[in-house]
Amino acid sequence: MTNLPPERWFPHIRSEICIYSTHTRTVPGGWTCGRHVHHMLFEINLVLDGTQTAIAGSTEHEQHAGDLMLISPMQMHDYQIRGSENTTFFVVHFQVDDPVFHKLFEMNNKGLYAKGHPLNTLLVPLVMNLMKALFEDSKSTSRLFLHLFTLITELQSYFNQEGQGKELALHSELSYLIAKEIETRVLSSTSSDQPGGDWLESISHNLGVSRRHCHRIFKQFYGMSPREYLMILKRQEAMQMLVSSTETIERIAHRIGYENVQSFSRQFVSWIGCTPGAFRKNHQDDVLHLTPLER
């Protein structure tokens, strides 16, 4: 046999990928999703029928049937049905530990890709294949991940061409590490926002940068301060636990960094407009879009 490749040893390669909170849903006129953020997850939202308003950051998009919305990790967003007709959509959230993909996505994602856009033409059949596979056999993980990896590969290839000549974002890795540190503090109940505990100083020290630099880079990259992100995570984690677990409100308060249930309840009322107990009673089906932190 000729043209054999030279002898070479390649490093061990390991990758983790997660598909979370994937669903189809039909919602009535007047419905609103509520502004939220997914900590390290990408989101794909495909409108199957009807029209919705997608709000990514401060930009509004009218999303019609066949239009595709891509949401970057850490991007504040909301969906609203401003007309009177029902709207049906398919949503998939996924996490993949590929720093090159993260950077390309963050640099090039424009949010809305309307029907007829080259990226829409490329991705919608792949999104539909994934949806079909979920309906046919959602337990066949190898098949599902094959569809998802195909979608990610095509998306990365497209963004790689779009990003030719651009420098990768210099501060994306540091911003990512800051976000992960904040997430860890929420999970470990060490994220108290009370006076006397400068958690951002601790994060800055761990990462070997100044507190000021840490704050500036994070806000520049994600459009919110580290404290704003911390409070968003606390709010979403509290909402998720209230409707998806049987833990006491006192235990939930402690798990997200509050010393007592009274402080947590006051903060929750300022967030949501009702007490944790009332939210648990009245909102059992309203937080499908929220993705809990992995403990």
Rank of each mutant, 00 (worst) to 15 (best):
F105H: 12
N120P: 03
L168I: 09
G66T: 00
C33T: 00
N160K: 14
M128Y: 07
E85F: 03
Y176N: 14
L168Q: 14
Y229G: 03
F149G: 10
E247H: 14
H205A: 14
F159N: 13
K166I: 06
K139V: 00
T153V: 02
S15V: 11
M107K: 15
F159V: 03
T248D: 12
E60T: 04
G197V: 11
L207T: 05
H283R: 11
S202E: 13
L46W: 03
K180Q: 14
Q240H: 15
Q267T: 13
M74C: 10
C33F: 02
N282E: 09
L46N: 03
K132I: 04
K219F: 06
T248E: 10
S157F: 08
W199P: 01
N260R: 11
R266K: 13
R185M: 12
Q63C: 07
I249R: 08
P118R: 06
S175P: 05
T88G: 08
F145A: 02
Q240L: 10
V243P: 01
A114Y: 01
I252D: 08
G116C: 02
L148I: 00
L41A: 08
L288I: 06
S157C: 09
V186E: 04
L122N: 04
L123C: 03
T291I: 15
L104H: 12
P226E: 03
R82C: 01
L290M: 06
L151V: 01
L104K: 13
D97T: 11
S191V: 09
M74H: 14
I81E: 02
D78L: 06
P118I: 03
E237R: 13
E237Q: 15
N282Q: 12
E259W: 07
I44S: 04
R216M: 07
F145V: 03
S191M: 09
H117C: 01
Q236W: 00
R143A: 10
H205D: 10
S140G: 06
L130Y: 09
Y113T: 01
T53I: 06
H102K: 15
K103D: 14
C274W: 05
P118G: 05
V37I: 13
F89R: 07
P6W: 01
A253N: 10
H205P: 00
H171A: 07
Q75D: 08
H61M: 03
I19G: 04
A56E: 09
F94P: 04
E162I: 11
Q63W: 00
V124H: 06
S192E: 05
R211G: 09
I17P: 02
T190K: 13
T88W: 06
L200D: 06
M231Y: 09
H64Q: 07
E162D: 11
L112P: 03
A65V: 02
A179F: 02
T291S: 05
L119G: 05
F149C: 10
E106N: 15
G116V: 01
P99T: 06
L119N: 07
E250L: 12
L155H: 08
A114T: 00
G163I: 04
R211H: 13
G83Y: 00
P73A: 04
M40Q: 15
T141N: 09
R266G: 05
Y229F: 15
V47Y: 02
W9A: 13
T248G: 15
L207E: 03
Q156S: 13
E85M: 08
T291N: 11
M239H: 05
D285A: 12
G165K: 09
